[in-house]
Design a protein around this nucleic acid. Structure first.
Length: 597
RNA sequence: GGCCCCGUAGUUCAACGGAUAGAAUAGCGGUUUCCUAAACCGUAGAUACAGGUUCGAUUCCUGUCGGGGCUACCA
C-alpha cells in the first residue's frame, strides 16, 4: 500500500468529481507532520487554494473531510493555515507493520524492465602516492551510491580509472633509479604505495633544489621548471615509455605492481570494490586517436609548436590542451579514450564520475569535446562533484605534510575503538578475534558515517577528534542500537519467545511506537530520493532518525518484559523491522554492524 | 582579471520554495535494583549584510562583505 499515492489519487478524484481544473498528482506536496502538530501526515493545500477558490483553511477542511470519508484509515484531520494534518486510525498501524514485515529486504524494489546501465567511476588514484583522506571520501561516496542505485533497480557497474602512466610515474621511476639503491617494499618493510610515495617526494625535493639554483642563477621560475635537468630526464623517460622501451616498461610495471598491492589492502580495509578497472595506459592511445581524428575533422586545432588544443571560447570557456607539442598525452586525452572504451564495452545509459569539485572545469570540457566530436552519449556523462575535505587548520597540503594518510587514519580509528571498547569492558567474554572484528567494524563505522552523513556536494571539515566520537549522530551510535536489538532477540530466543510472529491485530500503539512507524514507512522514499539526488547523506541521516526514535521507545517501554501479549508481539515485530531497516540502510552505505558492542 | 562554489547555534552537520529553522557536540542540570547508560530527559544558543520575486525565502534573483576552487605542455 502506498499511502502518499492513495492520498494523491483521492484528491485528484475529488477534483474530477467537482469538474475542477485537472491537477498533476506530483504537484501535491505531502510531508511528515511536524512534531508540534497533531497528525501523522500532512498535505500542503496551498496549490489547491486557487482551484477551489476558497481560503487555505477552508480548502483544507473540504479536502480533509473528503479524504476522511473516502479512505478508511484516515480517522481525523485538522488544518493549520494551509496545512492539512491527517491522522491515521490507531488500528491502521498494525496493518502497516504487518505489511512492512512482509518483505525480507526493507525498501527493496524489483529490477526495472530494460534495466538501465549506470556506470559509476570512483577512486581513480594516481600511482605515485598512497591514498589519503580525500580518496576516502571519494571511495565511500562512490561505493555507497553504487549500492543505493542498485537498490532502485538499476544495473550498476562500479569502475575505476587507474592513472598508471604519465609524468608523475616517470618521476618516481627516476627517483628509484637515482636514489633507490634497489629498494623494494619487502626490504623497506612498508606498503608499496607508501614506498613509491616516498620516492615521489624525494624527486620533488631534488627537483625543487635544481629550480632554486637555476633561479638564483638568474633564470625565471617557470623556465627553470621546464629546464631543470631532472624534469628533462623525466620527460625523456615519458617519451621512452610511450615508445615502448623495454627497460622503462619493465621498471614501470614493477613499481605499479607495488602500488596496486598497497591499494588493494586499503580498498579491502574500506570494504570497497570494483566490477571493472580501467588503466590509463590502456586507454590513452585511443584518446590520442580521438584527438587526431577531431583534428582532421577540424573540431580542434594545432599550434605552430605542434601542440593540439580545443577552442572552447565559444562555450564561454578557455582553450584546453589536448596533446603536448612532443605528441605525448595529457590527463584529458586519456579520459576521452576511457569514455569511448567504456561506452563500447557497456553502452551505459548514464555514466557518473565521482570526482572532486576542483575538476569541474575538466569535466565540462570533457563533455563538450566528446559532444563536438559527435558522440551523442556525451549527454549522459554526469560529474558527481563532491566537495573538498579540509582539516580544522585548513586545507591539506602535501608540502606542509598535513595530508592525512588513509592507512594511518584507518589504523587510528580502529585503535580508538579498541581503547573505548576495552574501557567499557562489555566484550570481555569474547575471544581476541571476535573483539578485533568488533573494533574494526566500530572504528571504520565511525569514519565512514562521519564522512557519509555530509552532503557530497559540500566541502566538509574533518576534525579527527570529533570523527572518533562515538556518541550522538555517529556510526557507533547506530551500531550500538543495532547491537541492542540483536541482544533483545538473543534473549527472546533464550526465553523461548518467538520473534517471527505477525504483530497481531488488536493492538493500539503508543506515541513513541507511532513515531517510529512513521519513520520506518519513509524508507523506500528516502532511497528513491538518495538515488535520484545521488546523495548517500540522505540515507545516513535517515538511519540516525530511526535509531533515535528507537532508543526513545526502548527507553520508555519494555519489549520482552511486556506482560500484555498483543503489545509484546507488536513490539517484537517492530524491533525486528527496525533491525532489518538499520541493517539494510547501513549495508547500502557500506557500513558493517557488530552483533554486540 | 575571467568563470564556478560556499557563508545556518561556540563547533560539526540538517531543512523537494512551506508551519514556531532541526540534530549532534561543547556548557549547565537530571535519569540505572528493569531487555546493553556507547542510552534517555531537561536547559540555553544560529539563517553574514542590503534589496527584490510571492500566499510564503535558509532555499530563487541582484548587489555588498567574507571563505574556497578552477583558469598549467600537472593529474
Amino acid at each position: 500500500m502506498n499511502i502518499e499515492k492513495r492520498i494523491r489519487d483521492t484528491v485528484i478524484r475529488y477534483l474530477d468529481e467537482k469538474s475542477l481544473q485537472p491537477f498533476p498528482p506530483e504537484a501535491l506536496q505531502i510531508q511528515d507532520t511536524r512534531r508540534e502538530f497533531s497528525g501523522d501526515i500532512t498535505l500542503v493545500v496551498f496549490p489547491l487554494v486557487k482551484i477551489l477558490r476558497k481560503s487555505p483553511e477552508e480548502t483544507g477542511k473540504i479536502i480533509g473531510g473528503y479524504l476522511r470519508d473516502k479512505i478508511d484509515w484516515i480517522a481525523d484531520f485538522n488544518t493549520v493555515k494551509g496545512f492539512l494534518n491527517l491522522e491515521f486510525s490507531k488500528g491502521f498501524w498494525v496493518k502497516v507493520l504487518d505489511e512492512l514485515s512482509d518483505s525480507a529486504v526493507p525498501g527493496s524494489k524489483e529490477p526495472m524492465e530494460n534495466q538501465p546501465v549506470y556506470m559509476v567511476e570512483y577512486s581513480s588514484p594516481n600511482t605515485n602516492k598512497p591514498l589519503h583522506l580525500g580518496h576516502i571520501r571519494n571511495n565511500l561516496i562512490g561505493f555507497a551510491l553504487s549500492r543505493i542505485l542498485g537498490s532502485r533497480g538499476y544495473q550498476v557497474i562500479k569502475t575505476n580509472i587507474v592513472n598508471d602512466r604519465g609524468i608523475h610515474i616517470c618521476k618516481t621511476m627516476l627517483a628509484w633509479q637515482k636514489w633507490g639503491k634497489g629498494i623494494t617494499p619487502e626490504k623497506a618493510g612498508k606498503k608499496g604505495d607508501h614506498l613509491v610515495g616516498d620516492l615521489y617526494v624525494m624527486f620533488e625535493q631534488h627537483y625543487k633544489k635544481e629550480i632554486e639554483s637555476l633561479v638564483s642563477g638568474g633564470m625565471k621560475e617557470d623556465e627553470a621548471r621546464r629546464k631543470a635537468p631532472l624534469m628533462q630526464e623525466a620527460q625523456e623517460m615519458l617519451r621512452k615509455w610511450e615508445a615502448g622501451d623495454p627497460d622503462t616498461i619493465a621498471l614501470w610495471k614493477q613499481m605499479n605492481n607495488w602500488v596496486y598491492d598497497g591499494f588493494g589492502e586499503t580498498y579491502a580495509e574500506l570494504g570497497v570494490s570494483f566490477d571493472k578497472i580501467y588503466y590509463e595506459s590502456e586507454t590513452y592511445k585511443l584518446g590520442k586517436e580521438i584527438v587526431l581524428d577531431a583534428l582532421r575533422k577540424g573540431y580542434v586545432y594545432r599550434r605552430e609548436d605542434n601542440s593540439v588544443w580545443a577552442d572552447l571560447t565559444g562555450e564561454g570557456l578557455d582553450e584546453k590542451l589536448l596533446l603536448r607539442s612532443d605528441g605525448t598525452a595529457v590527463y584529458i586525452t586519456q579520459d576521452l579514450g576511457t569514455a569511448r572504451i567504456r561506452y563500447d564495452d557497456y553502452h551505459f545509459d548514464r555514466h557518473i564520475y565521482v570526482v572532486g569539485n576542483e575538476q569541474n572545469y575538466h569535466f565540462q570540457v570533457l563533455k563538450i569535446i566528446l559532444k563536438k566530436i559527435g558522440y551523442p552519449w556525451a549527454d549522459n556523462l554526469y560529474h558527481l562533484s563532491y566537495g573538498m575535505v579540509e582539516l580544522p587548520e585548513g586545507k591539506m597540503k602535501s608540502r606542509e605534510g598535513t595530508v592525512v594518510d588513509a592507512d594511518d587514519l584507518i589504523g587510528e580509528m580502529k585503535k580508538t575503538a579498541r581503547e573505548m571498547g576495552d574501557e567499557l569492558g562489555k566484550l570481555d567474554t569474547l575471544g581476541d578475534d571476535e573483539k578485533k572484528d568488533v573494533f574494526r567494524k566500530v572504528g571504520l563505522g565511525a569514519l565512514k558515517y562521519f564522512i557519509l552523513k555530509v552532503d557530497p556536494k559540500k566541502n566538509m571539515t574533518f576534525n579527527p577528534r570529533e570523527s572518533i566520537d562515538f556518541n550522538g549522530n555517529t556510526g557507533p551510535f547506530i551500531q550500538y542500537t543495532y547491537a541492542r536489538i540483536r541482544s533483545v532477540m538473543r534473549k527472546a530466543e533464550e526465553r523461548g519467545i518467538p520473534v517471527d510472529e505477525k504483530p497481531g491485530s488488536g493492538y493500539l500503539p503508543n506515541d513513541k511506537e507511532i513515531l517510529l512507524m512513521r519513520s520506518l514507512m519513509r524508507f523506500p522514499g528516502v532511497l528513491d530520493d538518495a538515488a535520484e539526488m545521488m546523495n548517500p547523506s540522505l540515507l545516513a541521516n535517515y538511519v540516525y532518525e530511526i535509531v533515535k526514535a528507537f532508543n526513545q521507545f526502548y527507553h520508555d517501554y519494555s519489549i520482552l518484559n511486556e506482560p500484555a501479549v498483543e503489545a509484546r508481539r507488536f513490539r517484537i515485530a517492530l524491533a525486528v523491522q527496525v533491525e532489518k531497516t538499520i541493517y539494510r540502510a547501513m549495508y547500502l552505505l557500506g557500513i558493517d554492524l557488530p552483533e554486540r558492542m
